[in-house]
């Protein structure tokens, strides 16, 4: 059970139960749909970018606890951030999810609450669940409005 609690930490369960920034954003100027073809999960990310800053960000969709919590935590953290900051955040989260932390330069303390997602690393089949939202965000700040897929 300990292993599982490492993955499903309280913060993740909380964000799954009560996702922050959930729903459509009417005045979004970037809308990206993310799809995980493996499980059929889909999420839509709405971002309002003004003066190279994420003024507002919301998401909706269906997904597993990891995917919903990752989206929720991401919106919480990205809101108000500059595009450069968000880009750097993406890189750090991506590395945290996919690389061996002992050999990595990632400082989990910098990631603050997002560090709860680090447990996903031990579950290779679930990494895509956690990274879907982040790929959608990267695509949104790159200015493309289209579908992205984890495959």
């Amino acid at each position: 059970m300990n292993d599982l609690q490492e993955l499903y930490r309280e913060v993740i369960l909380d964000h799954n139960r009560h996702p922050r920034n959930f729903g459509e954003l009417e005045d979004a100027n970037r809308v990206v749909e993310g799809v995980n073809p493996l499980c059929g999960d889909r999420m839509t990310l709405y971002v309002k970018i003004i003066d190279k800053k994420v003024q507002d960000i919301r998401f909706k969709g269906t997904g597993c606890a990891i995917s919903v919590a990752s989206s929720s935590l991401m919106t919480e953290r990205a809101k108000g951030g500059s595009l450069d900051e968000v880009e750097s955040l993406f890189e750090q989260v991506h590395e945290m999810l996919t690389s061996d932390i002992t050999g990595s330069s990632i400082n989990l303390e910098n990631l603050d609450k997002l560090a709860v997602l680090s447990g996903v690393r031990e579950y290779p089949t679930r990494v895509k669940c956690a990274s879907l939202a982040w790929h959608a965000l990267k695509s949104a700040i790159a200015g493309s409005e289209d579908k992205i897929s984890t495959e």
Partner: peptide, 11 residues
């Protein structure tokens, strides 16, 4: 979600 169920019963 089914994926969470799958991971939990797998363990």
């Amino acid at each position: 979600h089914a994926h969470d169920l799958g991971t939990i019963v797998d363990r």
